[in-house]
C-alpha cells in the first residue's frame, strides 16, 4: 500500500474520531447543566425585610435563597469596637466601613465560611459570633478572628428601600 493512501486513511479516521468526540461533549453538557439552578430558582425575587422592630444590640435572622441572613442593629459600643481593630490583627483584612454601609446595620450571610454551619450570635471571644461546628470566632463586624474559617462572613447585595425596609438581593 502506498504511503499517500495510508495518510489519507489516517486522516479519515482522525476526523471521524474528532467529530464523534465533539458530539459526545455536546450531549454531555445538557446532562450536566440540568443540575444547575433552573430558571424558576434564578428568578426568585429578592426578599424585603421590615427592621423597624429590631432594638439596638439585637439581631434578627431571615431566610434568603435558602440561607440565613443576619441583620444586626449594632450599639455605638459595638460599632466602635469593630472600627478600632487594626488591619494587621485580621486574617482577612477588611474595614468595617466597607462591610456596613450604615454603621448601625450589619447585614450578612449567616454562614460560617469554614464549612457552612450557622454561627451563634453574641458568643465567642470577640463579642460577635461563634461557630459551634469547628470553633470559629467572628467579631462585631462578622470578620473572622480565630479558628479554621478562612474568610469573613459574606455581605450580600442589599439596599435600604426606606429607613425601615431592607431589600436583600
Amino acid at each position: 500500500m502506498s504511503e499517500k493512501k495510508t495518510e489519507r486513511r489516517e486522516f479519515l479516521f482522525t476526523a471521524t474520531y474528532a467529530v464523534g468526540a465533539v458530539g459526545v461533549a455536546a450531549v454531555v453538557w445538557p446532562m450536566v447543566d440540568q443540575m444547575n439552578p433552573d430558571a424558576s430558582v434564578k428568578a426568585l425575587a429578592s426578599t424585603e425585610v421590615d427592621v423597624s422592630s429590631v432594638e439596638p444590640g439585637k439581631a434578627i435572622t431571615v431566610l434568603w435563597r435558602g440561607k440565613p441572613v443576619f441583620i444586626k442593629r449594632r450599639t455605638p459600643e459595638e460599632i466602635a469596637e469593630a472600627r478600632a481593630v487594626k488591619m494587621d490583627d485580621l486574617p482577612d483584612p477588611q474595614k468595617d466601613e466597607d462591610r456596613a454601609k450604615d454603621p448601625e446595620w450589619l447585614v450578612m450571610l449567616g454562614v460560617c465560611t469554614h464549612l457552612g454551619c450557622v454561627p451563634l450570635n453574641d458568643k465567642g471571644d470577640y463579642n460577635g459570633w461563634f461557630c459551634p461546628c469547628h470553633g470559629s470566632h467572628y467579631d462585631t463586624s462578622g470578620r473572622i478572628r480565630k479558628g479554621p474559617a478562612p474568610t469573613n462572613m459574606e455581605i450580600p447585595k442589599y439596599e435600604f428601600v426606606n429607613s425601615n425596609i431592607i431589600k436583600i438581593g
Partner: peptide, 16 residues
C-alpha cells in the same frame, strides 16, 4: 446536520 456529517465520515471509515 451534525449527525449527517458524522454518518458520512463513519460510512467512509467503514468502507476503508
Amino acid at each position: 446536520l451534525y449527525l449527517i456529517v458524522l454518518t458520512i465520515l463513519v460510512y467512509f471509515s467503514m468502507k476503508k
